[in-house]
Design a protein around this nucleic acid. Structure first.
Length: 720
DNA sequence: AGCACGCCGACT
DNA sequence: GTCGGCGTGCTC
């Protein structure tokens, strides 16, 4: 028993009786063959262990991918009470820890971790080190949160520690010492309100109220009601003593829903959780949720892991917005995280927006969720009138020409300005679409390497996105044309030109740097980049959606869907057709997303896109992953990885070069580096196998010394 | 990732 | 003999 080589029955757990009196017996004798028998672990001589469940399974925070597993530690008696599952602990880890255990000297790094569970017996067949310290009695990593993080890490081929960093905010001892407020009693159930505009809306709320877990893809009617509707759904869950979690794409949207929740529930029953609260306030509110003081959370993607008790409803608004993807590895998407939570925590699921992503259409298509939409008649009555102008139409009116506006857009604006504010949406400058020949629309390619051309900022000419060569002598390879389509004119210059065209009307801009929240119900021109449109108090009298070709020309699989989403989000701020609301879109009228806007049929558009993707084998009908890095690293990785049998490898191909001074966009190599990217594709249902193979290969790469690691991305956003 | 162990050559 | 190079492998 006490001899170093005494136990050879590996795999055979010791009898419980055998463990009873002998406190050291559960520490398995080492199976490592030692030349000289080592002394018994001295740390344990006389050190009392926890009476029951003396083994803690610990997740070590941070560290390389191949440490992504649980490690077992002995629980000393004095830490027994504090070392509860979910608490933050410190443990010795590494070779130095062995020294301590064997009584040689101090050593081994102290690492932070979480106790995931307490068990009676260790699986590890070797001597256990002891927990060094319990940092705080707060059980922050609940079993449900652990399981969620585990499944997210697996799905995204990331490490648990990385996901945990997104899910559990850093500790602040002073905040932890504060008591959280007493939970308020549940409110009365609110009525359906404007949910009754949707045939199945009230039934969805009834199901939430009953404790069921309905799932809906909600195509919201245009107009200002959606924040109230989200709040009402959360209030319905809360009235049934269920928690609710609402995830919005940005702080502005979250604040609107927060205000509606306050109006509906009063103060103290919900919290707003966003990343920009600052670490202390964020932890204070997170703790209030974790402790069950508050059961309704509204926030940005920073809230998607919020440990809401008895979760009854998860909701995501505008899931096509790119900010729903976490910026940090492994980049989980809020929609996927909330789907996982709905399934595992038996909560209702509500995915809403003015647009409809292909992923949402897929949820309906597979029967995972049901559509929740208004009747066509009501959609027509609620939406503004949409008119199109082909982008080739020349402006004949002199004033219109001065403002670069087609005549119809100019006339519409002039008329609408008599009745209220007019929104003008212009694509962001620097939003560089794939350049094309003005005459034949053939994409412009590098004369040397056939890479796509980019327009440099300002008037800097043309450059190849792959090899970086300047292209002063470019001409179209198809038709010999020498002109490219006009560049985007930014919001600033558009505002100046509109100011000259409408001298008596105030012009305001809303964009990345200065986002306007709301504008009053007075005649004004509001020039905005997509996503920054202010809400107009009484709805806009009209909207002009300019330079549609720029949104549509973006070299991405989702360009059409994204363009339609941007247009719908702007057009939804415009008064209904009955109130005179008009939208003019400047884009080729025969294009599918333009037609979908005219008919206000986002779901139909998504269904057709989905069919195309199925035909081409693109996501979400297949599952994809991107592997990028230095060319040799990508090649070695692909050669070494044991990919699932049906995995298809596309590429590798060179990634675009990041222009100096421009922020790096996804799909681009770091400045000054040449990177390759390969796409991997598997059938639906095989995404888990692909992720697991990639994780294994990446772990081997990190463990081995050869070569740099590659960058992995599951569900890459920009392909095409 | 660290860190120790270990098996090789050059040295006081 | 023993000091130290870094090539493998383990860390509960």
């Amino acid at each position: 028993m006490s001899s170093e080589n005494g136990r050879s029955g590996a795999g055979e757990p010791p009898e419980a009786a055998e463990r009873g009196g002998e406190q050291l017996a559960f520490i398995r004798e080492t199976v490592r063959k030692a030349k000289v028998p080592r002394a018994k672990p001295r740390t344990w001589r006389g050190a009392a262990l926890a009476g029951s469940l003396p083994v803690a399974r610990v997740l070590v925070d941070k560290g390389p991918v191949h440490l992504d597993q649980l490690w077992e530690y002995a629980v000393p008696a004095e830490l027994d009470a504090a070392a509860q599952p979910g608490t933050r602990v410190r443990v010795r880890f590494g070779a130095g820890a062995r020294n301590v255990r064997e009584g040689r000297r101090e050593g081994g790094g102290l690492l932070d971790g979480y106790i995931v569970e307490r068990v009676a017996e260790a699986e590890y067949r070797g001597p256990l080190a002891a927990l060094a310290q319990v940092l705080s009695p707060e059980p922050v990593l609940t079993p449900a949160l652990y399981e969620l993080c585990r499944s997210v890490a697996d799905r995204y081929a990331g490490s648990l520690a990385d996901v945990l960093q997104l899910a559990v905010p850093p500790r602040h001892a002073r905040i932890e010492a504060e008591p959280s407020p007493e939970p308020l009693s549940p409110p009365a159930r609110p009525g359906p309100g404007t949910w009754s505009r949707y045939p199945t809306g009230p039934a969805f709320l009834d199901a939430v109220s009953r404790g069921d877990s309905p799932r809906a893809v909600w195509t919201a009617l245009p107009g200002p009601h959606w924040p109230q509707e989200l709040a009402r759904a959360a209030g319905t869950a809360l009235a049934a003593e269920r928690g609710a979690l609402l995830v919005l794409p940005d702080g502005r949207a979250a604040a609107r829903v927060d205000a509606e929740l306050t109006a509906l529930l009063g103060e103290g029953r919900h919290v707003l959780l966003t990343a920009d609260l600052g670490p202390e306030e964020r932890y204070r509110r997170w703790l209030a949720v974790s402790r069950g003081s508050v059961r309704v959370v509204v926030g940005t993607r920073a809230a998607m892991f919020a440990p809401v008790r008895a979760l009854g409803l998860v909701a995501i608004w505008d899931d096509g917005d790119g900010s729903h993807s976490a910026q940090n590895a492994p980049h989980p998407h809020a929609r996927e995280v909330l789907m996982s939570r709905a399934a595992h925590e038996k909560a209702a699921f509500l995915l809403g927006g003015f647009g409809c992503t292909v992923e949402a259409a897929q949820l309906v298509n597979t029967g995972w969720a049901l559509p929740l939409a208004a009747d066509r008649d009501r959609v027509r009555a609620t939406a503004p009138m949409i008119r199109t102008v082909g982008d080739g139409d020349e402006a004949r009116d002199e004033a219109a020409r001065a403002a670069r506006l087609p005549t119809l857009a100019w006339q519409t604006a002039r008329e609408a300005l008599k009745h209220g504010p007019v929104l003008v949406q212009v694509p962001r400058r620097g939003y560089v679409p794939r350049l094309a020949c003005e005459r034949c629309r053939e994409p412009a390619r590098c004369t040397t390497c056939v890479g796509p051309l980019e327009a440099l900022e300002g008037d800097g000419g043309l450059r190849c996105g792959w090899c970086g060569r300047g292209q002063p002598e470019w001409h179209c390879a198809e038709c010999g044309g020498r002109r490219l389509r006009a560049r985007i004119v930014g919001a600033g210059r558009t505002a100046e030109e509109l100011g000259r065209a409408f001298p008596s009307v105030p012009v305001r801009t809303s964009g990345r740097d200065h986002i306007l929240d709301r504008v009053p119900d007075r005649p004004a021109l509001i020039v905005s980049t997509p996503g920054a449109e202010p809400v107009a108090e009484g709805g806009y009298a009209a909207a002009l959606l300019l330079d549609g070709w720029a949104l549509l020309g973006f070299p991405d699989l989702r360009a059409d869907e994204e363009a339609l989403r941007r247009w719908l989000d702007a057009a939804a701020l415009v008064r209904s057709q009955a109130e005179g609301g008009t939208v003019v879109i400047v884009a080729e009228p025969t294009l599918r997303p333009v037609q979908a806007l005219v008919r206000w049929d986002p779901a139909g558009h998504a269904v057709r896109e989905l069919a195309d993707r199925a035909e081409l084998g693109f996501p979400p009908v297949s599952r994809m992953a991107a592997v990028s890095g230095p060319p040799e690293a990508v090649a070695q990785f692909l050669a070494a990885a044991e990919l699932p049998a049906d995995a298809e490898v596309l590429g590798p191909v060179p990634m675009s070069v990041t222009a100096p001074g421009r922020p790096r966009r996804p799909g681009e190599a770091p400045p000054g580096e040449r990177w390759d990217r390969a796409l991997l594709r598997v059938r639906p249902g095989r995404g888990g196998a692909l992720a697991s193979a990639l994780k294994t290969a990446q772990a081997a790469r990190l463990a081995g010394r050869d070569g740099e690691p590659v960058s992995l991305r599951i569900d890459p956003l920009n392909i095409g």
